[in-house]
Amino acid sequence: MKMMKTEEAVGHVLCHDITQIIRGVTKGPVFRKGHVITKEDIPVLLSVGKDHVYIWEKDDTLLHEDEAAAILRDICLGTNMHGSEPKEGKIELIADCDGVLTIRRDGLKAVNSLGEMMIATRHGGFPVRKGDKLAGTRIIPLVIKKDKMAAAKEAAGPAPLLDVHPFGQKKAGVVTTGNEVFHGRIEDTFTPVIESKLAEYGAVMAMHTTLADDPAAITAAIQDMLAQGMDMVFCTGGMSVDPDDQTPLAIKNTGACMVSYGAPVLPGAMFLLAYAGDGRPIVGLPGCVMYAKRTIFDLVLPSLIADVPVTAEDLAGLGEGGLCLNCHVCTFPNCGFGK
Rank of each mutant, 00 (worst) to 15 (best):
R122W: 04
G124S: 08
F126C: 05
F126M: 14
V128N: 06
R129Q: 13
R129I: 03
K130T: 11
K130N: 08
K133P: 00
L134R: 00
A135C: 07
A135E: 02
I139E: 04
I140R: 07
V143S: 05
I144V: 15
K146L: 00
D147I: 11
A151Y: 02
K153R: 15
E154P: 00
A155S: 02
G157F: 08
P158G: 02
P160L: 07
H165W: 12
G168R: 12
G168W: 11
Q169T: 11
K170N: 10
G178S: 01
G178E: 04
G178I: 01
G178A: 05
N179Y: 10
E180P: 02
F182K: 14
G184M: 09
G184N: 07
R185K: 13
F190I: 04
F190W: 13
K197C: 01
M207R: 15
T210R: 12
L211I: 12
D213I: 03
A217C: 08
I218P: 04
A221V: 06
Q223H: 08
Q223R: 15
M225R: 08
A227Y: 13
M230W: 03
F234M: 15
C235W: 09
G237T: 03
M239L: 15
D242C: 08
P243N: 01
D244C: 13
P248C: 06
K252A: 11
C257E: 14
